[in-house]
Design a binder for these strands. Structure first.
Lengths: 220, 220
DNA sequence: GTCTATAGATGGATAGAC
DNA sequence: GTCTATCCATCTATAGAC
């Protein structure tokens, strides 16, 4: 019986994948510059020069992680904005959807996107993507303020609150009881929406309207 | 006329101070490991080896910054907990007070306390202080849940929300219109309290009760 | 207190065998 | 595809003059 499921690459793609997983974990805890290629290789279980068979440079590893994180995220949020729904439901779906994606990802993402990585001039390409994501977030917030669904708030401040919740999701995740894990996307979204809604009593209605949007968001 | 204001050290203490200021800014943007002693020295306007007249090691610089940030913060929050007031007012005062202190500080703090710095085994001393601050935050949240002022929420999740707002304060600050800067402590506190209060309509009362506590908090 | 020169250590990346 | 050996750049830190 011939194996048709796995392509010609053999175990090569697996090792490349394990490098991305372990590197993302180390970057998240120690930072990009605080992590050596020797540490990554040790976690993967290969020698340090073997890394360079799979990636041309150390920078290429973090660039690949940025790509895998930011390109789908920007496409998800811009797709959400293009569709229908109230601004409040869209923001709820975005937060719940992003947190769900972050927690489902094999990589320990988000943390390494902050600070040093996006500020590095060598990685400017991904800074543009991050700005597009932030801009889309501010658009939803602005729309909600215009319709009166949201309180009058500086979009930049509210957007920072959203980003803060997303960035802390993997950290929060580790501090929370396992039985609450499935609820974290909903709880994260509810926490932010409660603070932005003019009438917090509408939260359950917003969550209900957001449910199909969230499903579509995660599938996109 | 003899200068009595400045002590015997002459300009030595000034240079040491400028090193702390510039190092904190570079650490905040590039991370601790992403910043070299040459870059710090260049910002200060001295040669790289001259740093080592003022600090024995590079690590000593970041340790001093952690000390200057965490020791007063822990003392402030534990003093707040020991005093009177409702849990909601205490939490409001803590957030507004911390944001005010962060924005008033000559150092670009907080960012460098995250991730790589506190996770570094060499800096374990300050991890304990950070945990005391987090524990005190959870205590206030728990107290508010017990009295029914706050909604039923996992204290760990709500504490992460608070930490997230504090950590993003210097970042948010740079994105906000200058005329809103003075209001940022109040806005940050209000944003969090709105999401935690069982009755968000009480927000103005809570802010009023918190006002004297905030003043005492910043003075401590 | 600051400088130049440099030691000593570490980390990213290459060469070439298997 | 992974290994050992090693090069070379960079970085922290020291030595010693001024």
């Amino acid at each position: 019986m011939v194996s048709v499921g796995t392509p010609k690459e053999g175990s090569g793609a697996e090792t490349r994948e394990r490098i991305l997983v372990e590197a993302s974990r180390l970057f998240a805890v120690q930072g990009y510059h605080g992590t050596t290629t020797r540490e990554i290789a040790a976690e993967v279980g290969i020698s340090q020069p073997s890394l360079f068979f799979h990636f041309p440079t150390k920078k290429a590893i973090v660039e690949e992680l940025c790509r895998l994180d930011l390109i789908p995220a920007v496409s998800r949020i811009e797709g959400l904005l293009a569709g229908g729904g109230s601004p409040a439901a869209k923001l709820f779906a975005m937060i719940a959807g992003e947190v769900a994606c972050i927690l489902a990802s094999p990589y320990d993402l988000r943390a390494h996107l902050a600070y040093e990585v996006l500020n590095d001039p060598d990685l400017g390409t991904y800074r543009d993507l991050a700005h597009r994501f932030d801009e889309a977030t501010r658009d939803v917030i602005r729309a909600g303020c215009d319709t009166g669904e949201f309180i009058e708030v500086d979009p930049a401040i509210a957007q920072q609150l959203v980003i803060a919740v997303l960035l802390r999701a993997p950290v929060t995740d580790r501090h929370v009881q396992p039985n609450l894990k499935d609820l974290e996307p909903q709880m994260s979204a509810a926490l932010v929406l409660r603070s932005l809604l003019t009438d917090p009593g509408r939260l359950d209605d917003v969550a209900a309207e957001a449910a199909p949007l969230t499903r579509r968001y995660c599938a996109a």
